[in-house]
Write a protein that binds this DNA or RNA. Structure first.
Lengths: 364, 364
DNA sequence: CTGAAAGCGCTTACAG
DNA sequence: CTGAAAGCGCTTACAG
């Protein structure tokens, strides 16, 4: 299996059996058992309660320094690590938060998660990520998963589920912040963070109009934030007395963008500008236009939405709408933590509008 | 708070107090308690055991159809969802897997996670993501976290920790697959998946040499896979009788690449090709070169490693090394599941080498 | 066919 | 200062 420098290789292949011998010596069932407080109690001749007290440094109840030392040392020796699951059961808290996102490979979401995790971390919470694939089935599965009590709080981006469904599933048992893509509506326990998608889309459309474009198409997918962005697009077009046209994409991926544009180009494509509902769609659009021999922005101007890192790497660099996903994630985690650890416990749901920014580059 | 179409807005601001009223009506402590099996038992007049039996469809022990129906209905009515934490405590299994990655915003990792999650999902496992930031401290924290029993298995990408540290922390209590960046060495319980980083780097360097480049620098960071890739670079250069030069980056981000190249350009930069240890570094390099008025590939050729989605979007498109992160993630999850649910339980650790592929584009 | 009981590993009043 | 005991919500032998 010593591979030469040949760049083409074969699928997953086992490379070593040496390890078999190594393993034989270890790993009988016993080695796998994790030491518990009881083990430490037995080893030190103390009670399990005393062990728990010492290990948790409970202050009012002072165990004698000598005993404490012995317990601590034995714990160390046995490699004791508290069983978080057991602790969670007792405390009814998991100290874990989750991010539910439609597609972790869309660069906008890792940024959200990163910001979220930095705040969660600082407060001693772990972070889970649940990828819904943007489908109703998997969004429901995420909801079921939430109901099972894995986490204390969640930042959720849902494309399909409505408020009612969320409320019945969650029932205030897990703190929730939603990245809202529709217009804000108050909710009993759910906080919402959002940007004004319609306003942003309208502003971007207006930029295109101001540049003299008259035949502008929007490439969008009606789910998630697509609807609001289309609304903004329509508003701007209508205000300018122009006819809006929507090119429908199957989802928000680059591939979907390329596909939809290819289909459109096969017909009688006469638009001078395409406003894509997100950057991945815009990237797909640009690729298809280029492949068809149309120049961007000379023949067709293109604009996107999100300002993912690739946006400024494109040639021409992509005109788009920026919101700070990282800041949004961070802020959302802080909302959850304030709700869980106070002072916001029991506070009714609120909406928080975050700023957006038009980023004008060369593609439009 | 009705925002106009102004693109510049203010930081997080509260938008609605309407919800306060809505909330008043609900959410007193009682509503928050999740129904348990005991609640169902009380409501139906059956024992908690019977409830558990019915809800878990334990086959040999048949509860009468009538009682079963009543229990099921009551469970539905009360909105019963099993407490996963309690179940986990009893079963000593969490049915959760984790991915430990250095940086979720590096597009190569979401792909890994996506592949992983698709396999985990199919087997009924949930997936957690832990971001280590590529620092030793946070990698250790990840290890501690593992020891706490949150998950049954993990796919880990560590840049700093060595085998010994992993083994003491994990002790065969959690199944582990490591994306190995050093040369493969067998391990008692840890499976390893990897590509031959040295061979890939050597092959890519050879491509540059074959194109006539003599002054080739490698932009790299010595942690993680950087070391092996440098080794391959050195091997190729040495074989060709050329002098290798390493430009050191602080980490594997685009920013670090840009910084390191800027520093290098400030000196007496005389290289005709730069081979970056990953694509983000390559992207940073290209940006800096362009800013300095150097053309790619005419003045300086650039190659990367990973083939992240942006690589082909760049102008010029980036020459790089591709491995299928998605396939690697999928495969790793399958390894874990086979270990946890059989048939590979207790099998010694093995190494699995995956293929790589040189992707020659315009940047070199 | 059904229930009482023990126990998973921990925390937390409550007695001594 | 220390320990016996109850309980978190569940599963799983074990009796009836």
């Amino acid at each position: 299996m010593k591979n030469s420098t040949s760049p083409q290789q074969v699928p997953p292949a086992e490379t070593s059996h040496l390890s078999a011998a190594v393993n034989k010596a270890e790993a009988p069932a016993e080695a796998l058992r994790r030491p518990t407080q009881r083990d430490i109690a037995v080893a030190t001749g103390m009670s399990q309660t005393a062990v728990s007290l010492v290990l948790n440094r409970v202050e009012p109840c002072t165990v004698s320094a000598e005993v404490r030392e012995r317990i601590l040392q034995t714990a160390q020796q046995l490699g004791y690590v508290p069983n978080r699951v057991a602790r969670n059961l007792k405390s009814a808290r998991t100290r874990t938060l989750a991010c539910i996102v439609p597609d972790i490979t869309n660069p906008t979401y890792p940024a959200l998660v990163r910001g979220f995790q930095s705040a969660a971390d600082a407060a001693g919470y772990d972070t889970m990520i649940f990828d819904t694939d943007g489908t109703p089935e998997r969004e429901r599965r995420a909801l079921q998963w939430l109901a099972q009590g894995h986490v204390d709080g969640v930042l959720a981006v849902f494309f399909h589920l409505d408020e009612a469904e969320l409320l019945t599933a969650v029932r205030g048992r897990v703190a929730m912040v939603q990245v809202e893509s529709q217009a804000y509506r108050p909710s009993p326990y759910i906080d919402k963070v959002y940007i004004d998608n319609a306003a942003a889309a309208q502003a971007m459309t207006q930029v295109l109009i101001d540049k003299g474009h008259q035949r502008i198409a929007m490439l969008s997918c009606p789910i998630g934030p697509g609807a609001e962005r289309q609304r903004g697009f329509h508003a701007a077009m209508q205000k300018a007395g122009l006819a809006p046209h929507i090119i429908a994409a199957d989802d928000f991926t680059q591939a979907a963008g390329a596909r939809a544009m290819a289909a459109e180009l096969a017909g009688d494509f006469r638009y001078s500008a395409v406003f894509a509902a997100n950057d991945l769609l815009a990237i797909g659009t640009m690729a298809t236009l280029r492949a068809a021999g149309r120049r961007v922005p000379d023949d067709v101007a293109v604009a996107g939405f999100d300002d993912i890192p690739s946006a400024q790497l494109l040639q021409p660099a992509l005109t788009t709408v920026r919101r700070s996903e990282q800041a949004m994630g961070h802020f959302a985690a802080e909302l959850l933590i304030a709700r869980l650890d106070g002072p916001d416990t029991g506070r009714p749901g609120r909406g928080f509008e975050l700023p957006f920014q038009l980023v004008l580059r060369d593609s439009a």
